[in-house]
């Protein structure tokens, strides 16, 4: 079976982002870009499923401008077999993104589509669920453990109340949470090898996907800043302060 993994190019998680003073967005010029960390976990899980003998091929896909191929190469260096780049310079919102992924899934017939639970730029946490809906497939979001057994997957999910387990028939969409695994480090020879792996570029127009109604961003601002308070010197001082405020 095949596993299709969606990855997104985002501002690296270590970057302290700057909001542009004119409210037009977040500064990304010259900023380090990386694969969305949750997507990296999704790639790693797909590779582990393949290494355990439960899949034959891991395909990674991304949607975006030319530069996104860097992230596909990273995924190929991690061990993915081939890559698909859906080329567009337009901003793609989750519902349209899910429609594109569905078009790819229709073409490739994977048994699992694995995605990160959310991208750390727009923090939407939507695409996997939307793909599940559009495909009429089961979804297992926020996965912290995935067990494949023939045509079913048993997925442990991180939910507010604890750990929930679902059993889903394949094909299914699974979204990766933080504790699913620790992605491997990429070694130099693998980076060289990745350069020779197949990377197919598809023009977005060739997929025949209808662009969904979009949410319009009117402005972007820095959040209200929380100011640092005071340092207290002792527990007594702390207790006095909290008692004065009626908190204890």
């Amino acid at each position: 079976m095949k596993i299709l993994v969606g990855v997104k190019r985002v501002v690296d998680f270590n970057v302290r982002i700057q909001v542009k003073p004119d409210g037009s967005g977040v500064a990304t010029d010259g900023v380090k870009m990386s694969m969305n960390p949750f997507d990296e976990i999704a790639v790693e899980e797909a590779l582990r499923i393949k290494e355990a003998g439960n899949a034959e091929e891991v395909i990674v896909a991304t949607i975006g401008p030319k530069a996104c191929q860097e992230q596909l190469r990273t995924a190929l260096a991690m061990g993915a077999d081939r890559a698909i780049h859906v080329l567009t310079d337009e901003e793609i919102q989750p519902l349209t993104g899910a429609r594109i992924l569905k078009a790819l899934a229709d073409k490739e017939s994977p048994k699992i589509v694995m995605l990160g639970k959310q991208a750390i730029d727009d923090d939407n946490n939507q695409t996997a669920q939307m793909l599940g809906a559009l495909s009429h497939w089961p979804q297992a979001t926020f996965a912290s453990k995935v067990k494949i057994d023939g045509d079913t997957a048993t997925v442990t999910r991180e939910v507010d109340a604890g750990l929930e387990t679902l059993s889903v028939d394949l094909p299914a969409v699974i979204s990766a949470d933080l504790r699913l695994n620790e992605p491997r480090y990429v070694k130099l020879p693998d980076i060289m090898k990745a350069k020779r792996k197949p990377l197919e570029v598809i023009e977005i127009a060739d997929l025949g996907v209808e662009v969904a109604p979009a949410v319009k961003v009117l402005k972007t601002v820095a959040p209200a800043k929380r100011e640092a308070g005071i340092k207290v010197e002792s527990v007594t001082e702390l207790v006095t302060a909290l008692k004065e405020k009626g908190l204890i």
């Binding site: 982002i17 977040v26 750390i120 402005k219 972007t220 601002v221 820095a222």
Partner: peptide, 11 residues
């Protein structure tokens, strides 16, 4: 967005 490091107004 961005882990709360920016706030967007959307329509």
């Amino acid at each position: 967005v961005y882990a709360g490091n920016a706030v967007v107004t959307v329509e």
